[in-house]
């Protein structure tokens, strides 16, 4: 055992001075904890304020006193907000639109990312540049032309118009491509030698390698779909197909905003997204780190 160091062992190597990792001193730990607590507070404070406001009456909500920072045992705003819009319908619509969009976006990103990284064909670079150029055009500029196209395709006021345009994600294609570029080519070549076709190589060899990227992408697309407002607001006109975010606009008007009702509805519409994140947070963070630093070989 002498002279060997097991992976992860804390034993000192002979002849080396003891060095302390930065941030492991008591002061360092305290500083880290304080910074982490402050950052955590900064993120949780708005959610807490929304929840507290949802338990106040309008007059209390406008007080900005210490008392208005403490939740009250008053859930009448929830009852009122729930009856102001067909939330069950909005929930169903939102979940359906989000799931379909995520599935489509994952599929298209996987296929296109694989093609742009692993497959070789003429004009690959130019085509990829063309795909990336879509990111340069702000969506608001295209709103009216997109509306006209949707009108001609008879897609207005349907689920389709909320799913199809987001079923292909340029960011997703880019992300998956970057992951595939870090996968050793020998793996694909070996699979090819074993007689696998491109699709089999993609789904049986490539897919497991880019799972972190797909997870990050899936969550991003899910959040984007869940939070979409302007697009569905303009492209739809019926509550039968509209999502939650559009439903929330019922609390705003040209003369003021019903903040207590809005906060109550924001509270109950945010819960599903929070649950998804909490369930998948480990994978999400792992995926985000992998996406930032590439796949470890």
């Amino acid at each position: 055992m002498t002279g060997t160091t097991l992976p992860g062992s804390t034993r000192r190597l002979p002849g080396r001075r003891a060095t302390r990792r930065p941030g492991t001193s008591t002061t360092g730990r305290v500083v880290r904890l304080v910074v982490a607590a402050l950052v955590g507070l900064a993120f949780i404070a708005p959610l807490y304020w929304v929840f507290v406001t949802s338990t106040l009456n309008t007059s209390q909500a406008y007080s900005f006193s210490w008392a208005s920072l403490v939740p009250h045992p008053n859930f009448s705003n929830y009852d009122r907000a729930w009856h102001m819009a067909p939330w069950e319908r909005f929930f169903t619509n939102t979940i359906f639109i989000a799931v379909c969009t995520v599935v489509l976006a994952l599929l298209t990103s996987l296929l296109a990312g694989f093609a742009f990284s692993v497959m070789r064909f003429r004009g690959r670079g130019a085509l990829f540049g063309l795909v990336l150029s879509v990111m340069m055009v702000p969506q608001s500029v295209l709103l009216i032309p997109d509306y006209i196209i949707a009108q001609h395709l008879h897609l207005l006021n349907t689920y389709w118009i909320q799913i199809l345009p987001f079923g292909a994600s340029v960011f997703g294609i880019f992300l998956v491509r970057q992951f595939f570029l870090n996968v050793p080519k020998e793996l694909f070549e070996a699979a090819e030698l074993d007689g696998c076709g491109p699709l089999r190589i993609l789904f049986w060899v490539g897919l497991p390698m880019v799972r972190p990227a797909l997870l990050v992408l899936g969550l991003n697309v899910l959040m984007g779909s869940w939070n979409a407002f302007l697009w569905p607001y303009v492209m739809t006109s019926s509550n039968a197909v509209r999502p939650i975010e559009v439903g929330l606009s019922v609390f705003s008007s040209t003369n003021g905003t019903d903040y207590t009702g809005l906060c109550a509805s924001v509270s109950f519409t945010t819960i599903p997204v929070l649950v998804v994140f909490l369930l998948l947070q480990k994978q999400f963070i792992t995926g985000a780190f992998s996406a930032a630093g590439g796949v470890r070989g």
Binding site: F96, V99, C100, V103, L104, L106, L107, Y147, A150, Q151, H154, L155, L156, N157, T158, Y159, W160, I163, V234, M235, T236, S237, S238, N239, A240, V241, R242
Partner: peptide
Amino acid sequence: VAALGLVGVTAACGSTGSGGSSGGG
């Protein structure tokens, strides 16, 4: 994936708001 896609296609085809295909309406 295939099943969800199929459900999506079916539902999206069959689910149009009250305004039909007319968004402006």
